[in-house]
Every structure is written in structure tokens, then in C-alpha cells.
Computed example of a mutant assay.
Amino acid sequence: MTEEEKMLAGQLYDPSDPKLQARLHYAHRLSQEYNQTFDDETAKREEILSNLIPDHGERTYLQGPIFFDYGCYTHLGQHFYANANFTVLDCGHVTIGDSVWFGPNITLVTPMHPLRYQERNLRAHADGTLFDLEYQKPITIGDNCWFGSNVTVIGGVTIGSGCVIGAGSVVTRDIPDNSLAVGNPCRVVREITEADSMKYKTGI
């Protein structure tokens, strides 16, 4: 298996592999180029996004700045919105559904490292260059979700459709559909129901 195949299969892999490094540097460069654009430069931004995140839906809007490790392993649905400082470490697949909105400072992290330092620390190739071994767990986010500011989602998590994740949450476990979930670690507070409709709110 290639290092990319090992990576996408969730096995330990060498991230210093030349093919992976080439895509990593390309994505970092495209992220930086995007960050140098203004939000009214729509054609230029779309061109960059098409190269950085080939699988993105219509009306994707990333406020910027952004940072992607690979980009090509991220999949964005229709009508996706991310406010400032959107970070995606996508050595595993990151799949986001339709009509998902992110507040500022959202971080999605799929990389995982061994707990034992004997397996985590740097080691040497035959030529003396150093590398580490990593693995990944994918992230899946359903349709119609809203994340408050400063949310971090850890690899291996699936967040169902219709969820609201409160500001400052660190999501370390799956969240079922239509949940209001908050905290560190993030926990479900309750189900979101018809009773939450704005028509029942007074003073609005």
C-alpha cells in the first residue's frame, strides 16, 4: 500500500511521503493565496477553492482566513458558510452536509497520534531524515447544523443533522440528530423540537 492508501484506511502512515508532502504544500499555498483575497473577489476565490477543495457545493462561502492540510479530502455540501479562522486538518475525510453554518474559529482535526511516546516520537529514515507515524479518524457532519464560535471537533466524530453545537465546545463523541450540545467535552443538553420555534418566543 502507498502511504496515502494507509492514511485513508486509518492505518499508521508516514506523513513525510513525497506525494503527501507535495499535496500538503500545495494546499497550504492555496490557503495562503485565499487569505490574501478580499471577500468581493468572488471569481478569484472560487478558482482557488476549486483547486483547494474540488468537492465543494454551490454557494460555498469561506470568510477567511482559512487553513487546510490537504483540502482534497474535505467534502462540502451546498450552502456552506464558515466565518473567520476556519481550520481543517484533513488527513482523513471530512464530510459536511448541506446548509451548515460555522461561527468563527472552528477547528476540525482528523490526525491522531499514538499515546505511547515510544511510538509517537520522531524516527529516522535510512538517509537520516526524520519522520513520525500518525493515523487518522474521519469526521462527518450532517445537514442543517450550526456551530457557535470556537468549536473543535476531534477525529472519529459523527454529528447528526439539525444540530446546534454551542460556543467553545470540544466535540469528542458522536452527537445524534437534532441535538443542542455544549461543553468540554461536548454533551447533549436536549433535543431541538418545534417548541424552539421563534414564533413561541416573546419580545422578538
Rank of each mutant, 00 (worst) to 15 (best):
T42L: 13
E134A: 07
N35W: 04
I66H: 10
D196R: 06
D174W: 01
N184I: 08
F147D: 08
V164N: 05
R120Q: 06
L130G: 09
I96Q: 01
H25E: 13
N51E: 13
D40K: 00
N83F: 10
R173T: 08
N150R: 12
S50H: 10
R123Q: 15
T152S: 14
L49D: 04
W146S: 13
A195W: 00
A84C: 13
D196V: 09
I192A: 00
G92R: 01
E58Y: 08
C145Q: 03
K137E: 15
Y34W: 04
N51D: 07
S16K: 03
R59D: 15
P18D: 09
G103V: 08
I204K: 07
L52H: 05
D90N: 07
L49N: 03
R59W: 13
K201T: 14
R116D: 15
P65I: 14
S169I: 02
T140P: 03
P15S: 08
A82Q: 07
N184S: 14
S169P: 07
G156W: 00
A27T: 04
E191N: 06
M112R: 12
V188R: 00
T107G: 11
D143T: 06
E3H: 07
L30K: 09
T2M: 07
T110R: 03
Q32D: 14
S197R: 13
V88I: 11
Q63D: 15
D17I: 04
I53K: 03
E47K: 10
H93F: 12
D143R: 06
S197W: 11
L180Q: 05
F86K: 01
S31D: 07
P185I: 01
S50G: 10
L130I: 07
A27L: 02
R173A: 09
Y117G: 03
G103C: 11
A84K: 13
T87Y: 10
C72D: 12
G64L: 11
Y70S: 12
Y34N: 06
I141Q: 01
F86Y: 08
I66R: 12
Q136L: 04
P111S: 05
L62G: 11
L24H: 13
G203H: 06
V109L: 15
N184G: 05
